[in-house]
Write a protein that binds this DNA or RNA. Structure first.
Lengths: 197, 197
DNA sequence: ATTTTTTTTTGACTTTTGTCAAACGCCTTT
DNA sequence: AAAGGCGTTTGACAAAAGTCAAAAAAAAAT
């Protein structure tokens, strides 16, 4: 892939990164040089349970879900849209096997950076620790929001919360994944939807 | 409070901070000088819903819970034990009013640092951004663990997970708070306990 | 030691959600 | 137009959890 093309693809993500604080030009160049672009098919698995999460991915296009198994059943834990950074946190931070998998729900474009490259990035540009900290704080906040959702007692409340906080997902993601994300089953979600309309 | 006394109180917390990487002596001195120690009574409210979370607290002793209201009912969202750093994430990071409150479940000893002091700390010691990032990553990980708990479908599974991951809390925290933390009601928790024993 | 208060458990009943099987609607393929 | 596949809805019934009131147990106060 041409470097100019890669640059264009990464541009909106870099802009997101700069929301807090502008980044040094060399840092941005380093990012463009070191990220790789991936084209992912619908349903393709990006990370399998049991593998160690060696990359941080950025969604440039498409939707990715994380899921794990509870017995036979799949549980969808996160739904990730453009400019979201994806890792399996425990696995990535501790470089141990993941208990969850990552899968594309649509044909998607991702950028990825290797764990060791990210480590190097923090060494080369210590100021990037500030960005890393702010980003992690943001992810902590949205994780708390998912917790808030799951603490809603009634299926109806969960669905309303979902509509409010994740409006861009409702028409993009099959209901079975949304139901699972909300911790209810698909039939219950379907009944909730009928009641609300 | 004497500085030597404060130093002794903070010592185990500083040791926790140094688990990843030793800290410069001046940084540790700065922390000892700038943290304030608070003695908190049982049931005392540390932060009230609607207030902005201006401090980061460290539990040196005791147990703190966070909770918010859903209608009339209180929902306990976190239970925090020694050396845990406490903030109301959204409120602290964005300096906007909190939707949750913080309360001591036991007589507790806390150390606190003002938001602006923390900001100053990051400026004075840029390397502390690394520590901040690692800490935030850790809190992200344990937040995901709470999510994992709430995604368990059956009350029995939630309680077993709680016993496994939070063994130090089971004999210290009244069951009504644990039930609420698990997203079930107290009577259900009581019945689960009978069935398990 | 006794009383009072708080915490935990129990019982009877209601509400909510899950389960399984089948049907429906819509898009794509032949 | 018919057939197949996928996502969504519906129905009948079972299981799980919630609610309210009261009892029992444990802890704290007098």
């Amino acid at each position: 892939m041409l470097i100019t093309e890669k640059k264009d693809l990464l541009q909106p993500f870099l802009k997101e990164l700069e929301k807090n604080q502008p980044l040094q030009t060399e840092l941005k160049e380093w990012l463009v040089n070191n990220f790789s672009i991936l084209n992912i098919q619908k349903d393709e698995i990006i990370l399998s349970e049991g593998e160690t999460c060696k990359y941080a991915w950025v969604v440039l296009n498409g939707i990715i879900r994380s899921f794990h198994y509870v017995g036979e059943a799949e549980v969808t834990s996160r739904l990730m849209t453009p400019y979201h950074i994806i890792i399996s946190p425990e696995s990535f931070y501790t470089q141990t096997p993941a208990f969850e998998s990552l899968q594309a729900l649509q044909p998607s474009v991702l950028a990825r950076l290797h764990y060791q490259q990210l480590d190097l990035l923090y060494q080369l540009f210590p100021s990037f620790n500030y960005v890393g900290r702010r980003l992690t704080e943001y992810y902590l906040f949205i994780t708390e929001r998912r917790l808030h959702l799951l603490r809603k007692q009634k299926a109806t409340d969960k669905y309303k919360f979902f509509l409010e906080k994740y409006p861009d997902l409702i028409n993009e993601v099959p209901l079975k994944y949304i139901a699972s994300f909300l911790g209810i089953n698909q039939e219950t979600l379907s009944r909730v939807r009928r009641k609300i309309k």
